[in-house]
């Protein structure tokens, strides 16, 4: 599978799972995309641990110190899986995986080169020494517990946006 092919499949599958998908080419575009998907005055949690996160963090005037109090979490995640349209969150490097869970809106930044083709590729990469928590996230939180009618945003985010950089 070529990189372009992998990217196309990933974006298609993520959109099928009801995630918002955005594809940008550089940091400038990333900030523009963030401006479009995040209401600028909402309290945003952004860990500011990577270059991209640092650039993103500067954009938001209201920063939540704690993800539990935030309306939005903006973070760069470990990677993605094309096969299922999944983003992969990892606790590696002192990341709070639950930061992408508690706020109602999760914005995940993924670097193109971090897309794995299949679930096998992903697990081959992490199975040797998995960190404390690896969570595969595909679309927003959902349930069909009442009459099998789909409802979005049970305990996790009701909105998931993925920005591919």
């Amino acid at each position: 599978m070529s990189d372009a092919e992998m990217e196309r499949i990933f974006l298609e599958n993520a959109a099928t799972a009801a995630a918002g998908t955005h594809s940008v080419s550089d940091t400038g575009d990333l900030l523009a995309a963030l401006g479009r998907v995040v209401a600028i005055d909402s309290p945003v949690f952004c860990p500011g641990m990577t270059e991209l996160e640092k650039a993103a963090a500067a954009l938001f005037p209201v920063r939540a110190a704690d993800y539990a109090a935030a309306a939005v979490t903006v973070e760069e995640v470990f990677g993605a899986v094309a096969e299922t349209g999944t983003i992969v969150c990892s606790s590696e490097g002192g990341r709070a995986v639950q930061a992408g869970l508690l706020p109602a809106h999760h914005v995940a930044i993924v670097r193109r080169e971090r897309i794995f083709g299949t679930l096998d590729d992903l697990f081959a990469a992490i199975a040797f020494a998995p960190p404390t928590n690896v969570t595969l996230v595909t679309g927003p939180s959902r349930t069909a517990d009442i009459e099998l009618t789909l409802a979005i945003g049970v305990h996790g985010p009701e909105k998931l946006d993925i920005i591919l950089v």
Partner: peptide
């Protein structure tokens, strides 16, 4: 195709 979440928890 896959559930919204798959958590792999390895120790505390």
């Amino acid at each position: 195709t896959i559930t919204s979440y798959v958590s792999v928890i390895t120790g505390p």
